[in-house]
Structure formats: structure tokens, C-alpha cells
């Protein structure tokens, strides 16, 4: 149990640093950045205590906002996907979720891909709607959200397979 808390705290801090020091300065093709910190929300252990989880997600987003001077956009997007996460867990992993027995490292790759993709797209869509904050730029919002999503997805998949402990 203590081990889990330690891992959570370390990954929380590590992901914030990774995001603000490296990932927000990539600016691939002009303005594309991956938002890899969402992997914290994606891979947070499935628990009954959703209040703590939502609050942690909020803190994560807010920390990123403070570093990047972006108001509250990351916090809003994080809270939103943290709240709707169970829906997508159920959709992607089906029966396993009902028994609260998901170990992300043991899941099927395709299932994980679908789960990541959906939550990342929603996160990025909320994020860029708030960044641009203009209903006339809906095409630009979708375009930027989509491209960044692909970027984030690739890096999240790489990270998750890099740090997953295969339990034989």
C-alpha cells in the first residue's frame, strides 16, 4: 500500500517536471506539443475512492497551469476526464472493470489503445477549446486537438510500455 502511494507521488512530480521542462518546449512543426501528463490520470489505479482521484487530477492540472501561465485550462480538462473515466474503463475493458480487477500492464494492447485514444481526444478537445476560447475557431480547435492527440497518444503508449511491469 505504501509502495503505491510512493509511486503515485513520484509519478505526479515526475510527470509535471517532464511536461513543463521538456514536453512543452518541443513545438513540433511550429506549435505541436504532447501533453504527456495525462498518463497519470489514464493509469491511476482503479479504486473506489474517486474523490481523491478527482482531486489529485485537479491538483495535477493546476500545477501544470501555474508552470505554463495558462489560467485554469489544464485543471478543467483534467477534472473532466477524471470524472468520466469509469465510463471509458467500462467501455474499453468490459467485464474486467466490473470486478475492479484491471491491471493496466496486463490488458490487451488494442483495448488499451482505444481507452487511451478516447480519453486523450476528450482531454485535448476541452484543452484547446479553452485555449482558443472562440466559437468561430472550431475548425482550428479540432485540428489542433487531433494532431496533438496523436502526438500525446504515441508518447503515452511508449511510456506505458516502458514502465509496465509484466506479471507473468
Amino acid at each position: 500500500m505504501n509502495n503505491n502511494v510512493l509511486i503515485t507521488v513520484l509519478s505526479f512530480i515526475g510527470l509535471i517536471l517532464l511536461q513543463v521542462i521538456i514536453c512543452s518546449n518541443i513545438n513540433f512543426l511550429g506549435d505541436l506539443n504532447p501533453y504527456v501528463y495525462v498518463i497519470f490520470i489514464l493509469l491511476y489505479p482503479v479504486t473506489n475512492n474517486r474523490l481523491v482521484f478527482i482531486f489529485l487530477s485537479f491538483l495535477l492540472g493546476l500545477s501544470i497551469d501555474i508552470f505554463l501561465d495558462s489560467g485554469g485550462i489544464h485543471a478543467a480538462a483534467c477534472v473532466a476526464i477524471a470524472y468520466i473515466r469509469p465510463l471509458f474503463l467500462k467501455f474499453s475493458f468490459g467485464a474486467a472493470y466490473d470486478y475492479q480487477a484491471i491491471k493496466f500492464s496486463n490488458t490487451d494492447f488494442i483495448q488499451r489503445l482505444i481507452y487511451f485514444l478516447m480519453l486523450i481526444i476528450i482531454h485535448h478537445f476541452i484543452l484547446f477549446s479553452l485555449v482558443l476560447f472562440d466559437e468561430n475557431k472550431i475548425a482550428l480547435i479540432i485540428e489542433q486537438a487531433l494532431y496533438s492527440s496523436i502526438f500525446t497518444l504515441i508518447i503515452c503508449l511508449l511510456l506505458s510500455s516502458l514502465f509496465s511491469k509484466k506479471e507473468a
Binding site: L51, F55, G61, D65, G71, G72, I73, A76, A80, A82
Partner: peptide, 22 residues
């Protein structure tokens, strides 16, 4: 509905920060 209430609270706080930053 405590989960939903917390979500709503934090989300609206984040939104207000966003609007202020504009």
C-alpha cells in the same frame, strides 16, 4: 452525488481561472 458535486466544483473553479486569464 458527492463525486459529481466535487467534479462540478473543481471544474467551475478551473473555468473561472481560465476566464480570468483571458
Amino acid at each position: 452525488n458527492k463525486t459529481f458535486v466535487l467534479f462540478l466544483l473543481l471544474f467551475s473553479y478551473a473555468l473561472s481561472l481560465t476566464i480570468q486569464s483571458h
